[in-house]
Design a protein around this nucleic acid. Structure first.
Length: 648
RNA sequence: GCCGAAGUAGCUCAGUGGUAGAGCAACGGUUUUGUAAACCGUAGGUCGUCAGUUCAAAUCUGAUCUUCGGCUCCA
């Protein structure tokens, strides 16, 4: 009898497992336990995601990826994308496949389909065909492409020009082909693909195609225009339902939808796209945001400035905007003079700085402005309040000495933290470093990047580094906000600028009488009031905390004879500056409560015979329901406190 | 800007060549109500805009404006 040779595999926990040579990852899983084998999807083999059935070698480091591992979705979704592509090619003859990657929570596949424009109805048809293929239990087989030119010719003869282009590009990187086989072992479809994949289409338990859209081959506008299908795929129907429900919830919270429902803002055809009309309710929220912001800035050593909305072309020539930002600016000519609608506030702040001489003792100077700027955005990219052509930045520029720099950054970080906490938002930070084509010396970049990093460390804030992602004129720290649904929003940004101090030749007189260039920091915390308002609308789902609510209390008299008492309550609240209304319509109490809930009014004060005789009010809180009776004075006090403390 | 979809009453939507509809909201009346929708009635639209086809256009065609999904995720 021959002894079987074995290989030794290093498992995730560092332990070793002996298995027969020639074993695959699946064999390994089986050798560990049958239940593990059942849940196994793929492998992390020496740090790379690989198919479950990949052959193993001695001393390989293997982690088995099960369905519980978030990385398993990469296998599933990528494979569902292949089934999608196979289905599309079955249904639409002549369809050519481009690429089909995994994206967050799903996947897409790009196609060129001659003579057919995909419609939402087609998605149902395609889903049906996909289900048919899944039920055929097609196997995913990986093969190395031996004869690349032969495969290239095959792609070309099939008209698969995109695949041919890709194969040619990756020809020296051990290209692989994934074949789908039906039950009889007959190859029915293939895709040039790096993988990894699941082993059998029957593992696809719950998927849905979500939308169709356009895209370009290699995201290049000059190249072929393709049709893209987006979909999502999960290990179980429950997971899929859960995901779809989340999408639905997000749709309900969409600030554009709530904006209309709650009469918050509008954009109108006559005034133009991307230009926001703030209706009273949202204007009130904005006022609260602004007051809060101004108060904190004044307390933290900022000085408020105001600057014009337009400036002569000359300014933008000096600042460099005419050179680098031209496509985004609105131009106009008045009295044969060219003017520009400001896309940024910085040049004005620089002018203010420059208008007087500065001593080293005066620095830092922190200039803040809620400055409204206008930027030309391409017509297809506008999105509610989040991406617009006119918006107000909570902008500030700090001019300081080099020895003050780290401290200033720390000051900004702490202000960001303070403001975000005020809204109950959490965030993460990212540091972007020197891009390839940047201005400024190596020395100054090092100084700037190290300073930012030092400030982050000293402040004790975790951060991620985005290499080469800074602006051409300096590195930056970006803050990403997380909303109630876990979605990420672009928040504050702190940027160093080596460009403007140079272009405007800024200087101050140092201790020794020499002229020095100040360090210039740009920073915004809300970013744009419009976008931040959108975030708040979606985060709170329109149910704003009391201090941000336009309507704070509605008094609901039960019958006409209680209206007089309701008015007493109204004036008591109004006296304390609480925004209150009376619903004296001839409606049932139930109807009034329903309308108040739908309007997301934080408090309802219900008054009837009982309250009248006891000289109190019944309070009902939005969503929370009946809170019982309370004396008017105590109610007013409670609300005042809640507003004062900005309770979330 | 590009690819695709859509635009009908304040809002949500039905209406595929033959006299413009519903629900909610609004307004009027009746009801006077106790913690998420009382009842009856009235009014409201040159169907985004402009042109065209047709005896006849919300409906078909073209242009245009606006909105929506995407155009960043790279075998």
């Amino acid at each position: 009898m021959q002894t079987q040779t074995t290989i030794s595999i290093i498992l995730k926990d560092g332990s070793r497992k002996e298995i027969p040579s020639g074993s695959t990852g699946l064999d390994l899983a089986k050798a560990i336990s049958n239940s593990l084998a059942k849940k196994s999807v793929g492998l992390l083999l020496n740090g790379e995601l690989k198919d479950l059935v990949t052959g193993l070698k001695d001393s390989d480091k293997v982690e088995i990826i099960t369905q519980e591992d978030p990385r398993s979705y990469e296998f599933l979704r990528h494979s569902t994308a292949h089934i999608l592509a196979e289905a599309v090619q079955n249904l639409f003859k002549g369809a050519k496949i481009a690429i089909g990657p995994v994206i967050e929570n799903g996947f897409y596949y790009d196609f060129e389909i001659p003579d057919h424009k995909l419609s939402p109805d087609d998605l149902l048809k395609i889903e049906k065909e996909m289900q048919r293929l899944i039920d055929e239990e097609q196997k995913f087989i990986r093969i190395n492409i031996q004869d690349i030119d032969k495969q290239l010719n095959e792609f070309k003869s099939q008209g698969e020009k995109f695949k041919a282009e890709l194969l040619n590009q990756y020809r020296n990187e051990n290209p692989t082909l994934y074949i789908l086989e039906d039950k009889s072992g007959k190859p029915v479809w293939n895709d040039f693909c790096r993988g990894p994949h699941i082993t059998n289409s029957k593992q696809i338990k719950a998927f849905k195609l979500l939308s169709v859209s356009g895209a370009y081959w290699r995201a290049d506008e000059t190249k072929e225009s393709l049709q893209r299908i987006y979909g999502t795929s999960w290990w179980s129907q429950e997971e899929l339902d859960d995901h779809l429900q989340k999408l639905e919830e997000a749709e309900k919270r969409d600030h554009r939808k709530l904006g209309r429902q709650m009469d918050l803002f509008s954009m109108q055809e006559e005034s133009g796209p991307g230009l926001i009309l703030w209706h009273p309710a949202l204007a009130y929220l904005r006022k609260q945001m602004e007051d809060y912001w101004r108060d904190l800035h004044m307390r933290n050593g900022y000085e408020m400035v105001y600057t014009p909305h337009i400036a002569k072309n000359d300014l933008w020539n000096i600042s460099g905007h005419n050179e680098f930002y031209k496509e985004n600016m609105f131009y106009m000519t008045v009295d044969e003079q060219d003017y520009v609608l400001k896309p940024m506030n910085c040049p004005f702040h620089v002018l203010i700085f420059q208008s007087t001489r500065h001593s080293y003792r005066e620095l830092p100077i922190r200039m803040a402005e809620l400055g409204t700027v206008y930027r030309y955005e391409r017509s297809g990219v506008m999105h509610g309040l989040a991406r617009v052509r006119g918006f107000t930045q909570d902008d500030a520029h700090i001019f300081c000495r080099r020895d003050q720099y780290v401290n200033e950054i720390k000051g900004v970080i702490s202000l960001v933290d303070l403001i975000y906490k005020g809204f109950g938002l959490t965030y993460t930070a990212e540091l972007s470093t020197k891009p390839k084509d940047a201005i400024g010396t190596k020395e100054i970049w090092e100084f700037a990047e190290n300073g930012l990093e030092q400030a982050l460390k000293e402040y004790g804030l975790d951060y991620k580094i985005n290499p080469e992602d800074g602006a051409f004129y300096g590195p930056k720290i970006d803050f990403k906000l997380k909303d109630a649904l876990g979605r990420i929003w672009q928040g504050a940004t702190i940027q160093l600028d080596f460009n403007l101090p140079d272009r405007f030749k800024l200087h101050y007189t140092d201790k020794d009488g020499s002229q020095q260039q100040p360090v210039m920091i740009h920073r915004a915390i809300y970013g744009s009031l419009e976008r931040f308002a959108a975030l708040l609308i979606e985060h709170f789902s329109g149910a704003f905390p009391l201090w941000l609510s336009y309507k704070q209390v509605i008094v609901l008299p039960i019958t006409d004879r209680h209206v007089e008492y309701a008015k007493k309550i109204e004036s008591a609240l109004k006296e304390k500056n609480i925004r209150v209304e009376i619903d004296d319509r001839a409606e049932s109490l139930n109807a009034k409560i329903r309308d108040a809930e739908m309007n997301k009014i934080p408090y309802m004060a219900i008054v009837g015979d009982k309250e009248l005789s006891e000289n109190n009010v019944s309070i009902r809180a939005r969503k929370k329901g009946d809170l019982g009776k309370i004396f008017l004075g105590a109610f007013v006090e409670q609300l005042s406190k809640e507003i004062e403390e900005k309770t979330i």
